[in-house]
Amino acid sequence: MSTPYFFGYGSLVNRQTHVYADIHLARLKGWRRAWRHTDLRPVAFLTVVQDNSAEIDGLIAHVPNDDWVALDEREHAYDRHLVCDAVAHPKDAPVNVSVYAVPDGKHGSPAFEHPVLLSYIDVVVQGYLREFGEAGAARFFDTTAGWSAPILDDRDAPKYPRHQSLSKDETGFVDDHLRALKVSIHR
């Protein structure tokens, strides 16, 4: 039996948001990130959707104590999909890798009632900057769909529970990329 890992592609890329061990850079083929909303959460969030032409950077991490139940609770708005053959990673031993995604038909596009939180974007991009550098963080923006979603500027009073403080340079990087995408940011 091989060791269970999960592929993180959003806030889990930011190591400050968790205490998972045995983490490695990885790449997932055949999936793309997208902003979505589900009735299980009041705000929009990242998910992955199948796209044979796409590949995204992220991290794989060992499932703590090989206990999927605890991790499934954290990721309760998602379904778990086995993606072993689609993930490139540096592990020598065989590993079972799964990714969490909102199931088809159970999500919709973000709306003003369910915006994307800027504090969430900040956390994700900070993780990509630290793990993959500026080029990797730019790829995050390029390989994520749904930037037409309304974004709520909650930086002064973050609503995202695992929010982090960003440096001036990190904040500027996020703001520059959002401006280039011509996103709609509201207070």
Rank of each mutant, 00 (worst) to 15 (best):
G8M: 05
Y9F: 14
S11V: 07
S11A: 10
S11N: 09
L12R: 03
V13Y: 06
N14Q: 10
R15A: 08
R15K: 13
R15T: 15
T17I: 03
T17S: 13
T17E: 10
T17N: 04
H18Y: 14
A21Q: 15
D22Y: 08
D22W: 08
I23W: 02
H24K: 04
L25Y: 04
L25C: 06
L25T: 13
R27I: 06
W31N: 00
W31V: 01
W31D: 04
W31A: 00
R32I: 14
R32Y: 10
R32S: 13
R32W: 05
R33P: 12
W35D: 09
W35G: 01
W35S: 03
H37P: 00
T38M: 05
D39F: 05
L40W: 01
L40F: 10
P42C: 07
P42F: 06
V43S: 08
F45L: 13
T47Y: 03
V48N: 09
V48I: 15
V49R: 09
Q50N: 07
D51M: 01
N52D: 14
A54H: 06
A54D: 14
E55V: 00
E55T: 09
I56K: 01
I56S: 01
D57C: 01
D57M: 04
D57P: 00
G58D: 10
G58Q: 07
G58N: 08
L59Q: 04
A61L: 05
A61H: 11
V63E: 07
P64F: 12
P64A: 10
N65I: 02
N65D: 15
D66C: 01
A70S: 15
D72Y: 03
E73D: 14
E73S: 06
E73Q: 13
Y78M: 00
D79L: 00
R80A: 07
R80T: 11
H81S: 00
H81F: 15
V83F: 09
V83E: 08
D85F: 01
D85K: 02
D85E: 15
A86C: 06
V87A: 06
H89T: 02
P90N: 11
P90E: 14
K91L: 14
D92W: 03
A93R: 08
P94W: 03
V95H: 03
V95D: 06
V95S: 05
S98I: 01
V99R: 02
Y100D: 08
Y100S: 02
A101Y: 03
A101K: 05
A101F: 08
V102E: 05
P103I: 10
P103D: 13
P103Y: 02
P103L: 05
D104K: 09
G105Y: 01
G105I: 11
G105D: 12
